[in-house]
């Protein structure tokens, strides 16, 4: 069964269509890049999958269910902006996640935090932007979810932090779960992806595997993207 499935999904903001007849499926075991220019509908799609928005028409299913209480339990979401409570210490944040999510693997989170030398007593607000991003990603990836929705996980951080974030995503790979990464920093993520979905002006323009694109076009996904979305 697909972890995420959209059928003729439409979302309008007032009269402006943000998503237009989107149909796609994401299978377990895949790491999928949701790639598109700014304003193409990436975040809207992720918010719909997460139940933060409701469709105007069409259908979106997560693990076969409409987004709601049951799907919140199996979706781990990394929002575009840092959303962890900054007044908390790392230890409090671990408790908080443990209370909220039955699938939270505290041991895994503690191990990753220790690896970064982040002390349990350290407060989120005392951390740099890069460290906050890392901590938030650790929390999100420490859940044994079925679907990880990562909205711009590598935007606005330095290259070393990017590498750390990507290797954390690979290191937590689970063949029964799917990861959807929205980004426009394609050259950085392309090697980590199985599959890419190109989205433009609310429409899916391409869904293909990374190696299929490289094999058939003789170019990287990044180069193809630049060609398709040339301004």
């Amino acid at each position: 069964m697909s972890v995420l499935e959209c059928k003729d999904l439409c979302k309008n903001y007032g009269h402006a269509p943000a998503l237009d007849q989107v149909s796609l499926a994401v299978e377990p075991g895949h790491i999928v890049g949701l790639l598109g220019p700014n304003g193409s509908g990436k975040t809207t799609l992720i918010k719909l999958a997460n139940g933060l928005l409701t469709p105007t028409s069409g259908e979106i299913l997560v693990c076969g269910m409409r987004p709601g209480k049951e799907t919140h339990a199996c979706v781990s979401y990394l929002p575009e902006r840092t959303a962890i409570p900054t007044w908390m210490s790392t230890a409090q944040l671990l408790d908080f996640y443990g209370d909220f999510y039955a699938d939270f693997r505290r041991d895994a989170a503690e191990e990753m935090l220790a690896h970064l030398n982040i002390q349990p007593r350290q407060r989120i607000k005392q951390m740099s932007k890069g460290t906050r991003e890392k901590v938030q990603l650790i929390m999100v990836m420490s859940r044994a979810a079925k679907l990880y929705l990562l909205d711009e996980p590598i935007g606005g951080v330095d290259p070393a932090t990017r590498d750390y974030i990507l290797s954390t995503i690979i290191g937590n790979y689970n063949p029964e779960a799917a990861v959807v990464i929205s980004t426009h920093l394609i050259s950085d993520v392309e090697k980590v992806l199985d599959e890419v979905i190109f989205i433009n002006q609310g429409r899916v323009v391409l869904q293909s595997s990374v190696d299929q694109i490289r094999e058939e076009k003789g170019m990287s996904v990044d180069e193809l993207f630049r060609e398709v979305f040339k301004c």
Partner: peptide, 17 residues
């Protein structure tokens, strides 16, 4: 596979292949 994929920074399915 996972360790090799992490080391190379690539998708585990690609490494598996």
């Amino acid at each position: 596979v996972r360790d090799l994929a992490t080391e190379a920074g690539v998708n585990p399915n690609t490494m598996q292949r």
